[in-house]
């Protein structure tokens, strides 16, 4: 998954607000989902890589629960139109 849109965002305390110019919508995301979006804004990543980022951010060991959480966050971000599937090179 990746995000090549020109998103604008700001993080305050435990939340991100994100503006999507493609839809004109503004979203409020919890900090973990916001971190996932930041990772994808930097470039395409697999669920595995996103789970790595989450483990580092949350300072926890990576386990299957984290991969599930990453999948759910990616699904939510996709549903909001903030990310899209990356085409393999």
């Amino acid at each position: 998954m990746g995000s090549d849109q020109d998103l604008s965002w700001r993080q305050w305390d435990g939340d991100y607000v994100v503006f999507n110019p493609a839809s004109g919508d503004t979203h409020v995301l919890d900090i973990a989902t916001g971190e996932v979006l930041m990772r994808l804004a930097a470039g395409p990543a697999s669920i595995e890589e996103i789970a790595d980022r989450l483990a580092a951010f949350l300072d926890v060991d990576k386990d299957s629960g984290l991969a599930e959480a990453a999948t759910e966050m990616v699904r939510k971000l996709d549903e909001l139109g903030l990310i899209e599937p990356a085409t393999p090179c």
């Binding site: 305050w12 305390d13 435990g14 939340d15 991100y16 607000v17 503004t26 409020v28």
Partner: peptide, 11 residues
Amino acid sequence: LDKATGFTRLT
């Protein structure tokens, strides 16, 4: 109120 809540209320 936290800032994200304040921001949302304003919108």
